[in-house]
Amino acid sequence: MEQSELQQLVEEISLQSFNRSFTHNARFNQRLKTTGGRYLLKSHDLEFNPKQLEVHGIEEFKKIIKHELCHYHLHILNRGYRHRDQDFKQLLEAVGGSRYCQIIPGQRRQESIKYLYRCKACGIEYRRKRRVDTNKYACGKCSGKLILK
């Protein structure tokens, strides 16, 4: 699918599902790895991960388009466009968009755990993103000394 075909598809889905026109740009973004698409607040453009279309097909891709169009139309109407907002959840369910995109095989999120601490007394392991001051903090179960592994 080319950029012009994507633009046309997004405009059609917007009219059919939302009864509103999509007047901004829709494009593919090769750099998107862990998401199906994104709505850009400042420019009101939509970007989509082309691998979602390749791997999961057009039907799943249409659900991703509906998801991003929910952000778009709600933001334009000054209503709750964030994932946590009730307006967003209701509109997404009404139009049949997907809440989450499917995982692309071979593209997992990197685990961001950098530090592993073990209790000297009971042996419980604590995985942390940030470094912990072992002089200040102790094991939560037995209050034993923590050791960086």
Rank of each mutant, 00 (worst) to 15 (best):
S17V: 01
F18N: 09
R20Q: 14
S21N: 11
F22M: 02
F22S: 07
T23Y: 01
H24A: 07
N25T: 15
N25Q: 15
N25K: 15
N25F: 11
A26P: 02
A26I: 05
N29V: 00
Q30L: 07
Q30F: 06
L32S: 05
K33W: 00
T35M: 12
T35W: 11
G36H: 01
G36K: 02
G37A: 09
Y39M: 03
L40T: 02
L41T: 08
K42C: 04
K42W: 04
S43I: 00
H44T: 03
H44P: 02
L46P: 09
E47Q: 11
F48T: 10
N49Y: 04
P50G: 08
P50S: 10
P50K: 13
K51Q: 10
E54Y: 06
V55R: 14
V55M: 09
H56E: 07
H56W: 12
G57Y: 05
I58A: 08
E59Y: 13
E59W: 12
E59H: 15
E60F: 07
F61K: 12
K63I: 00
K63C: 00
K63A: 01
I64K: 09
I65C: 13
L69I: 06
L69Q: 12
L69N: 13
H71L: 01
H71S: 02
Y72M: 10
Y72K: 12
H73E: 10
H73F: 06
L74A: 10
L74S: 12
L74T: 08
H75R: 12
H75K: 13
L77Y: 12
L77R: 15
L77E: 15
L77P: 06
L77S: 15
G80L: 01
G80P: 05
Y81M: 04
R82L: 11
R82I: 03
R84I: 06
R84A: 10
D87W: 02
F88L: 08
K89W: 06
K89L: 12
L91A: 06
L91V: 02
A94Q: 15
A94H: 13
V95S: 08
V95T: 03
G96P: 06
G96Y: 04
G97D: 08
G97N: 10
G97Q: 07
S98M: 03
S98Y: 03
C101K: 11
I103Q: 15
I104Y: 00
I104G: 02
I104P: 00
I104E: 05
G106C: 01
G106L: 02
Q107G: 01
Q107R: 06
R109C: 01
Q110D: 11
Q110W: 03
E111L: 05
E111T: 12
S112C: 03
S112W: 03
K114C: 11
L116H: 15
R118A: 09
C119N: 06
C119H: 05
A121M: 05
G123R: 09
Y126K: 06
Y126F: 02
Y126S: 01
R127D: 10
R128T: 01
R128N: 06
K129G: 08
K129W: 07
R130F: 07
R130E: 14
R131P: 03
V132A: 14
V132P: 10
D133Q: 09
T134F: 00
T134Q: 06
K136A: 10
Y137N: 13
Y137P: 03
Y137M: 07
